[in-house]
Design a protein around this nucleic acid. Structure first.
Lengths: 339, 339
DNA sequence: TGGTGTCATTGGATCGATCAAGACGATCCC
DNA sequence: GGGATCGTCTTGATCGATCCAATGACACCA
């Protein structure tokens, strides 16, 4: 009696065909070096012939591991140039594949950032999480840590310096320093900053890089900074005000979204972005890449972030777990026509 | 002997606490109406008290279902404005959550579009797939159909009209018709087309909407169309040539990427996009939304696409499976400053 | 009184893999 | 030569849920 053609072959099927026991087939898959080479070959032939792959549910049940990494994904942000998460998801999926993991996406309601995590954790659906939106005051990280759930954060635990979880982040200050220094090298003296409101730790970090670079050359920052919401309209207004009140010749922005606002103002006033009047954004979004003549932008090394995160995850999930070291990566500057 | 605090509670734990059998707890979770109301309440209290969630691996093993939907995700396309997939992923994740499904992302090598599908299918890791890149001649769909694997395609089976799998698509021709008619209503007479090479079925579909709209008003299309690669540079070159040779006053493009190329040419020539000289893109990307004064663009109803796809998936996975009807959705036009 | 039916609940088998322990023969060493 | 050791392979138990068949309790009706 052959099994229904719709039923995938099992260990037992392979074992019967190869004339060995189930355990031997299991070893052929998981510990090939335990088998004599001729038996191994015979089993592998049988596996090939039947097109066998271990049933994931059964394996997960027994080994108490799913080889899935959970990641919450919020709704797409329309009207902004924020594409960091999307590029990161791509990188993470590809990197974790090499480590034998798949990525499980789940939706999160902004009202209850814990929901979703709770469920997946209880039902042992994922082995670990990647937590991305740590800038929101980071309740997930705190909660997951209490729960002793394995996770790696993309983003530093700003408000919890005693946090014990591994994290990977990009040095925002280094990025804006890079951008500002680039403008200084181009001869600019009065370089303005348009960033986020003061309660954003990331925003303050990026701002610090700008002021650090200016101070390093003995230049003042007074009156050259503006803190607004992360929208194109805010960037437009802020740049208009700064142009009138502080006469900068260049802008460094905390995001491409804000930088687009600056380009908007330039257009309002017939200014052409370039060597004379420059703008630098942050994130190297598609917008920066395709806007006419291009927007110079700080580019986060998201591929490297993914690699480091997966490394940390592998450490966490190893037996015994490795104390993962946290990593701070340095961004680069994508030079384009706007500077 | 209490279980280790790190081990999640099981059915048996709940059963013991509630003083009922395992099966009764299982029923309380899956068929609550089978229980007497007082027993149900008692079991639910126990579940609550222990923080119990059914172990997914065990459930998957027994029910032969994972409640996971697999979706292949290619590498991010840099240098273009193509963000359809990202917006769609967001929508799909949120919609499938409501149906009790999670989304499993996996990476695909462009050389072997089947790899990944094969593995997940054999190991019964996912219940079904969502296939998105059907424009590539669609080898996955053919292969999955042969395999009798449940899947829904986002995109019509252009080259396989006899395909039996359910699909959901957006009427590209309707979108470009909408865009062209909008321009005609604004008084334009000579409206150019910049689209993709002829081997793209989607491109030809979108092109058809443009020519249909012009012909409906008795206007000629001769010399007004150009077919190029989907890059900003190509759009820029094509629009420059068209301006010189055909004197159009408006452009309809197969993508926002190409439309950005047109804006590039405008900028080269000191033309301001607006009522006089108009451009319309396709996809309503973030680029279209934040570029100064905005790019009018055809917007695919991706949220609705996700809803329809999940509906079709639920049908496929129901017992017995429902013959899912395929759906063609109509896009809308996001009006902005460029027209 | 006893048969029939319904309702609520139970116990054992099962999904397909891995773990733990043991069987078997060959080899080695004192 | 006998016991220990190693390499190779096998058997039975197990992970935690659901499926299936069966049980007991109870009401109904002839």
């Amino acid at each position: 009696m052959t099994p229904l053609s719709t039923t995938p072959p099992t260990l037992a099927d392979v074992a019967e065909l190869a004339g060995v026991s189930r355990q031997t087939v299991s070893n052929a898959v998981n510990n090939p070096d335990l088998l004599r080479s001729d038996t191994l070959a015979r089993v592998q032939d049988a596996i090939e012939a039947l097109g066998y792959s271990p049933n994931r549910a059964a394996r997960n049940l027994r080994t108490r591991a799913s080889h899935l990494i959970g990641m919450r994904i919020g709704p797409a942000q329309e009207g902004t140039a924020n594409a960091t998460m999307d590029r990161f998801v791509h990188s993470l999926v590809e990197t974790s594949r090499e480590a034998g993991y798949h990525v499980l996406l789940f939706a999160g309601s902004s009202e209850d950032p814990i929901a979703g995590y709770e469920d997946l954790l209880r039902s042992t659906a994922v082995d670990a999480f990647v937590v991305t939106d740590t800038y929101l005051g980071n309740p997930q990280a705190v909660w997951l840590e209490q729960r002793r759930a394995p996770f790696v954060a993309f983003g530093r635990p700003w408000d919890h310096p005693d946090a014990r979880h591994p994290w990977v982040d990009v040095d925002g200050a280094a990025g804006t320093d890079l951008a500002t220094t680039h403008l200084l090298d181009r001869g600019h003296q009065r370089i303005a900053w348009i960033g986020w409101r003061k309660d954003s730790r990331i925003g303050e970090d990026r701002r610090a890089g700008w002021s650090r670079a200016l101070h390093a050359r003995g230049l003042p920052t007074t009156g050259l900074a503006s803190r607004v919401e992360d929208t194109v309209a805010s960037g437009r207004e802020a740049s208009a005000v700064l142009l009138d009140e502080a006469q900068p010749t260049a802008f460094v922005c905390a995001s491409d979204t804000l930088a687009m606002g600056v380009l908007h103002t330039f257009r309002d006033r017939g200014i052409t972005a370039g060597r004379e009047m420059s703008v630098v954004g942050f994130d190297d979004s598609q917008v920066a890449q395709v806007v006419p003549f291009g927007l110079t932008s700080v580019r986060q090394p998201l591929e490297d972030v993914a690699v480091e995160i997966v490394k940390a995850l592998e450490g966490l999930l190893a037996h015994p777990p490795t104390i993962a070291t946290s990593t701070l990566l340095v961004p680069t500057l994508a030079l384009r026509g706007s500077s």
